[in-house]
């Protein structure tokens, strides 16, 4: 069951296997949460949206059909909830200031440099236009292809590709500044 594809797990859950949902949830919880959290500034709001997304999945249990990858469907739901949120509050990104960064180097100088590097990257990510940032997060966190990003965001593949390219270029610049 743990190695079963997402679609098989969702089908099993639709058939009444609650354990299949547990596996599915464990597989996607971290990535989906980061996707939401890095799109929304406030953690409390991100948690609320995150819960609403999963509730939507649960509600659609009996009507779900494997028309596309489960991941695409899941992030489509997430995108729609984010759009609703943005319409109400405007575009924001979670603040990364104050976060404890992982330290790979025992040298305090390297540690400080790593913090600065990550801070610049986080700032660059936050500075991205919302749609470009969303395309990037869907690519990195959701593992969606360009076509799937287009499907999840209600646009075509060319538009998704363009947004992702712009986002990558800006983030690459931030990394190369190191």
């Amino acid at each position: 069951m743990a190695e079963a594809p997402d679609e098989a797990l969702m089908a099993a859950y639709r058939g009444g296997d609650a354990g299949a949902f547990d596996t599915l949830y464990a597989r996607h919880r971290t990535r989906l949460f980061r996707f939401v959290l890095r799109s929304i500034k406030a953690r409390a709001v991100a948690e609320e949206l995150y819960q609403e997304i999963w509730m939507r999945v649960i509600e659609a249990r009996t009507t779900w059909t494997p028309k596309a990858r489960f991941t695409t469907w899941l992030y489509t739901i997430a995108h729609n909830h984010l759009v609703d949120h943005w319409r109400k509050r405007g575009l924001t990104l979670v603040a990364l200031e104050g976060d404890e960064l992982p330290s790979a180097s025992p040298d305090p100088a390297d540690h400080a440099q790593a913090r600065e590097s990550l801070a610049r990257f986080a700032a660059a990510l936050e500075a991205l236009p919302a749609l470009q940032r969303e395309a990037f997060l869907l690519y990195e966190e959701g593992g969606l292809s360009v076509a799937e990003i287009g499907a999840a965001t209600g646009s075509n593949a060319e538009t998704a590709k363009s947004r992702l390219r712009y986002a990558m270029a800006k983030l690459k610049a931030a990394v190369n500044d190191d």
Partner: peptide, 9 residues
């Protein structure tokens, strides 16, 4: 670099 960002759960 993105993966180096603090993990949130």
């Amino acid at each position: 670099r993105y993966r180096d960002l603090p993990g949130e759960e």
